[in-house]
Amino acid sequence: MGELANIFIKSAFIENLALSYFLGMCSYLAVSKTVKTAVGLGLAVIFVLAITMPINWVINTWLLGENGIFGTDLTFLRFILFIAVIASMVQLVEMVVEKYSPSLYNSLGIFLPLITVNCAILGGSLFMVSKEYNFAEAVSFGLGGGFGWFLAIVAIAAIREKIKYSAVPPALRGLGMAFLLTGLMGMAFMGLMGIDPAAY
């Protein structure tokens, strides 16, 4: 249990998908103009990461691996299957949410299609493979990674809301400033690098 909590904290704060690996930057920069939309997208990312990570783990281990049901190394199909799982899960989640919780759909729904091409999701799955996590660890990594991404996008959205009132040079307004801010936040996050939560 302690090991799983460790992975959760590590993937949320120390190996943050957005601020340490800079994954999912397209939607991170595009949808972080207000805190409200950022919260919506962040929640959707947590949701999708937590669902797709275990499924992709099962696919990778049981279908594609040498010890899987086909008995040969099929890892060259990994990209296709991973992205297909992600795309279909996103569509499934969209349909389910629309049917059973229209209010949640109204706040989350418009972000769901965006998530398919959010590299944090595919990147998460690929990192899971390269780190050789087991099933429980993969679940914990998915939840932690999603939570970390959520925190990062909400944080930058809050800063961007405030910075609207500052006198930024015209050519740097908006996008340019968002890049600078993310860079600074990334540097701050580098300070957390190497902390081992298990030691505390």
């Binding site: 740097l172 340019g176 993310t182 860079g183 990334g186």
Partner: peptide
């Protein structure tokens, strides 16, 4: 060489491009 510097470099490129 570190990751965040790419952010700064792109920010400056955007700045120059828009100016």
């Amino acid at each position: 060489v570190l990751f965040p510097s790419a952010m700064f470099v792109i920010a400056v490129l955007i700045w120059a491009h828009r100016a």
